[in-house]
Design a protein around this nucleic acid. Structure first.
Lengths: 201, 201
DNA sequence: CAGCCTGTTGTACTTCGGTACAGTAGGCGC
DNA sequence: GCGCCTACTGTACCGAAGTACAACAGGCTG
């Protein structure tokens, strides 16, 4: 498993964290982050988790980020996740919970608490019907549709490759075929078509 | 790790499944489920995953259930998850993916896939007050807003330059500032924000 | 006035996206 | 069997996009 790195204002570990991960390290948020680590970000009361996540991402931090909130809130969690966090949990959570979160996130998952997940499902279930029978997908093969969707979400070629377990070269081949079939100039115009923006469709 | 048990109509394993889990077992859905196992439920084309999940739960099955869809769909996934599934993925997914799903679910997580998660977050974000994407223009200057709109329409730097009667270099400067302010990685993600794909719309 | 923001432009550089040549392999229909 | 489609991969190239150093002018504010 990857190493655990905790970011807290005083650069120190709490007892529960060390219990969960005896080998954990800690440092101040401003210091550079290196290595293949899971990054836990302590968010103090009154601070916005999403802000700190966004700030770290802007600094080029690519590692998975997990929010440890002193005062957890579902809205705060939601904002943090949309800002690119991979998990959100109570900073005083039990060591066993932290360990589970680490496992899930370390394997590419997102950790969202039970309550929030239910809320997400409830929220999304409400807008279930919107299933437009798009005409753009008609001429595409199955694989091309998968790629088109990923691109339209904003994924890079490298990300699509990882997602579909193929090489970046193959992704490029699919993208080229898609652009040709849809008459799009580049991936951005492709996304406009797939997302149904403006005149297309 | 817990054992893997696959439920398919013919009670047989597919190659990719065995590759991912050499020790996996398979059986027909009707047979009783016993032991501490992860249960993978194959859903054939045209069938509803949520139905099969609900049926299993009614039979008293308490183990984690993961849907393997021959024809995956986000709506189907959503319904399956609300019905109590712990995961949902393509039945033809690569062994590495299956293995990841198993790890995540085996540790108490939910596996939902990138696309669906984004939709969930988008759906929930819409229901709840602080919608950051509505105010994307707030921090931008007048000129930056003009550039942002053009980019979001799919214009290239060269086209924007011609349109605004400035050099391509200046467009790049504006784009760079916009990306930083909005926390976007590239012009495609910028367009998603401006066009409200992942939030309002 | 000094300092800050906005808008503008320059050179040089790296990374990413897209294309142009390929090639292999499996499935399907005639 | 032969062609065709689909999926996948390779090397190489070019241009677009984005970043890292800048610089300069004008307007506004303490």
């Amino acid at each position: 498993m990857a190493e655990q790195l905790f970011l807290s204002a005083d650069g120190r570990l709490r007892d529960t964290w060390r219990t969960a991960f005896p080998a954990a390290r800690a440092q101040r948020p401003a210091e550079p982050l290196v290595g293949d680590v899971l990054v836990w970000v302590l968010v103090a009361p009154g601070e916005k988790a999403a802000r700190q996540i966004a700030a770290l991402r802007q600094r080029g931090v690519a590692q998975p980020l997990i929010v440890l909130a002193d005062e957890p809130g579902e809205d705060d969690a939601l904002a943090a996740l949309t800002a690119g966090a991979s998990g959100y949990c109570n900073s005083h959570a039990a060591p066993e919970v932290l360990s589970q979160v680490a496992t899930v996130v370390g394997n590419g998952g997102l950790w969202v608490g039970q309550g929030l997940m239910q809320r997400l499902l409830a929220g999304a279930a409400r807008l279930l019907p919107p299933n437009p029978s798009d005409g753009w997908a008609d001429t595409l093969t199955e694989r091309e549709r998968e790629v088109a969707h990923a691109i339209a979400r904003g994924a890079s070629n490298k990300e699509v490759a990882r997602e579909l377990a193929i090489t970046e070269r193959t992704v490029k081949a699919h993208v080229g075929a898609i652009l040709e079939k849809l008459g799009a100039r580049d991936r951005l115009q492709l996304s406009l078509i797939v997302n149904g923006v403006e005149s297309s469709r």
